[in-house]
């Protein structure tokens, strides 16, 4: 049955496709770039939402995974571009400018990082969890700033976007297509995950730990798994984001980035599958429109955010469809 929410979801995901296509036909490449940015940030939000909405883990450190994904792209591409081998043992590896390989590396490394951070952080809960994830994010941030081999605070610049077999990634619409397809796949995956036995157990652990333990599952393992999946998806988004800008820097790791990814999720509606899509799109539009109105546009952003948190708790989707389904 089509609920109002799923109708709205279809409308949003279609709009995210139609807007850049229209821009393409009108030769407005920058609109396509904006839509690509929205799709990629939405992907990061989809990742965070698995931890946040489904698992109830308020991570203020997801910038760590976003940044690791970004640096996976930056480091591989920088070596490929300068013909300096990344390592020569056990086999010669010269880096790569192939997106699929870069994505794989980004996903693996951000998942590994999420595993380590998760094992350590999930021993705590509540505010301690928020703060320890923040601390791990800051740790990586300061590390990246002083890691001079890869540019330190200056970051790494890649002159040409990496390649995807059969496509010209420098063409904005083709790069948008890549980001869009990955976002759709991630949404399908997240939806299946939520309905799977794993997802149901995770949601149950969020609401009542004892019940989950009573049926023989350990909430810690459930949460850790979700946290790793969440980190991996956000890492993939980081690799795409770095490719969008052809640039990666420690800014991607800062706690403001963590806050912003969280804002996408909240603006759209926590625990709603398409919340990050709505949130990221809204955020990009606000930034684009308000930024032109006033130098002090962040005041308005802050006010709007405050109003949403205080008075529209379901976020944008909640406001549009009402409270028919709080967590999905």
């Amino acid at each position: 049955m089509l609920t109002r929410e799923s109708l709205l979801n279809w409308a949003m995901i279609t709009a995210l496709l139609i807007v850049p296509l229209a821009a393409w036909s009108l030769d407005e490449p920058f609109i396509i770039t904006l839509a690509t940015k929205a799709a990629i940030l939405a992907l990061a939000g989809v990742g965070l939402n698995i931890a946040l909405g489904l698992g109830g883990m308020i991570s203020l450190g997801h910038a760590a995974f976003f940044g690791i994904g970004g640096y996976a792209m930056g480091i591989l591409a920088a070596h490929a571009q300068n013909y300096e081998p990344l390592f020569e043992w056990p086999f010669l590896f010269e880096g790569s400018n192939q997106m699929p390989l870069i994505w794989l590396v980004a996903v693996v490394f951000s998942a590994l990082a999420a595993l380590v951070i998760g094992v350590l952080s999930l021993r705590t809960s509540g505010v301690y969890f928020i703060m320890i994830t923040l601390a791990f994010g800051q740790m990586l941030y300061y590390f990246a700033i002083s890691w001079s081999a890869y540019g330190g605070e200056d970051g790494l610049s890649i002159w040409v976007r990496n390649e995807f077999p059969g496509l010209n990634t420098l063409d904005p619409i083709q790069f948008f297509a890549i980001a869009y397809v990955i976002l759709c796949l991630a949404l399908v995956f997240a939806a299946r995950l939520a309905r799977s036995p794993f997802g149901l157990a995770l949601a149950a652990a969020r609401q009542n730990e004892d019940r989950v333990e009573a049926v023989g599952l350990t909430p810690f393992t459930l949460r850790l798994t979700a946290f790793v999946i969440s980190g991996a998806i956000t890492g993939l988004a980081g690799a795409l984001f770095a490719d969008l800008n052809r640039f990666v820097s420690p800014t991607m790791l800062s706690w403001h980035t963590s806050g912003e990814i969280m804002i996408f999720v909240i603006l759209g509606g926590v625990g709603r599958l398409y919340g990050p899509v709505a949130g990221a799109a809204l955020y990009i539009m606000l930034e684009h429109l308000l930024g032109g109105v006033s130098d002090y546009w962040q005041i308005f952003l802050g006010l709007l955010l405050l109003l949403i948190v205080l008075f529209a708790r379901g976020g944008l989707i909640g406001a549009l469809v009402g409270r028919e389904k709080a967590h999905g």
């Binding site: 928020i130 804002i263 909240i266 802050g302 955010l305 405050l306 948190v309």
Partner: peptide, 22 residues
């Protein structure tokens, strides 16, 4: 919950910082 608190007070940071600059 803590999530709403984090966001609302993050929003306050934006308002305070840019307001002071203004």
């Amino acid at each position: 919950d803590h999530l709403d608190q984090v966001l609302a007070t993050f929003a306050l940071i934006l308002i305070f910082s840019e307001g002071t600059r203004w």
